[in-house]
């Protein structure tokens, strides 16, 4: 697959560097990601792939002694936004840029409540709308058939792969413009992995996807472009 050159840029970073205390993980990164595409981020373990994704929803900010230099922008509703602008609403940013973590992290509540949680946060309370959204999101993540009869069970009773799809469904409920996926198929067998890959290809129509993956064949199948984080992470002391 080749990159569709006509797509506009959706996400970009300018001279981005990142430090955990003295550990310099991301070094002067300036990249651009086109919209409606899947961009794979690859590199050896510990190179800062997960860290890189957290730049775009500012999730690293609660980590003590973490520090960022440079700038990061995303285009939301066709307007460029500096992610680190003081005036930006953090909840709003995070609803526009959904994230799925490396290890599935269902909240300690029922399956239904997990999926409807983002709706509750953004003030959608009309029961029918919520029900429809939950069903739609679960169907999108190919989980509906497996859980439709046990929506009130604790989400933590699901298998690892089901939890992973639950987290994907949960990230999809708010129709994010950007999806940040940290090895979303690492807990899945080949069959479910295939399902998720199909899902990502269909989501590409509406979303810009950043995908961390260790599987080269997966990247070859679905990614439009590849960004490699590699090399000399050093200890600047």
């Amino acid at each position: 697959m080749t990159e569709n050159k006509s797509n506009e840029i959706k996400i970009k970073t300018v001279n981005l560097s990142f430090y955990y205390n003295r550990l310099h993980v991301l070094k002067d990164i300036s990249v651009e990601f086109p919209e409606r595409s899947i961009s794979a981020i690859v590199g050896p373990s510990g190179q800062g792939k997960s860290t890189f994704l957290m730049i775009f929803n500012r999730l690293w900010e609660t980590i003590p002694d973490a520090r960022m230099e440079g700038e990061a922008f995303i285009r939301l509703k066709n307007k460029w936004v500096n992610i680190y602008d003081r005036s930006i609403s953090l909840p709003e940013l995070r609803r526009s840029a959904g994230m799925v973590f490396q290890t599935p992290n269902p909240l300690p509540m029922s399956i239904f409540k997990n999926i409807s949680f983002p709706l509750k946060l953004s003030g959608v309370i009309e029961k029918q709308a919520v029900d429809e959204k939950v069903e739609f999101a679960l169907k999108q993540a190919f989980l509906w058939e497996e859980v439709k009869d046990r929506l009130s069970d604790d989400a933590r009773s699901l298998s690892g792969g089901q939890q992973q799809r639950l987290c994907i469904a949960r990230a999809l409920t708010l129709d994010p413009e950007i999806l940040l996926l940290d090895e979303p198929t690492s807990f899945l067998d080949a069959g479910s992995g295939q399902i998720i890959e199909d899902l990502l290809l269909s989501l590409k129509e509406s979303c810009t996807i950043l995908l961390i993956s260790h599987y080269m064949d997966q990247i070859r199948r679905i990614a439009d472009r590849v960004m490699e984080l590699s090399g000399d992470t050093s200890n600047n002391s």
């Binding site: 953090l90 959904g98 973590f101 269902p106």
Partner: peptide
């Protein structure tokens, strides 16, 4: 930490996180 990160990443404000995740827990 995983609950906290999940709530944050879904756009929960600190008060929402307190009410819906931390207090029940």
């Amino acid at each position: 930490a995983s609950y906290s990160a999940a709530a944050d990443a879904l756009g929960a404000s600190p008060v929402q996180k307190l009410l819906y995740v931390i207090l029940p827990y």
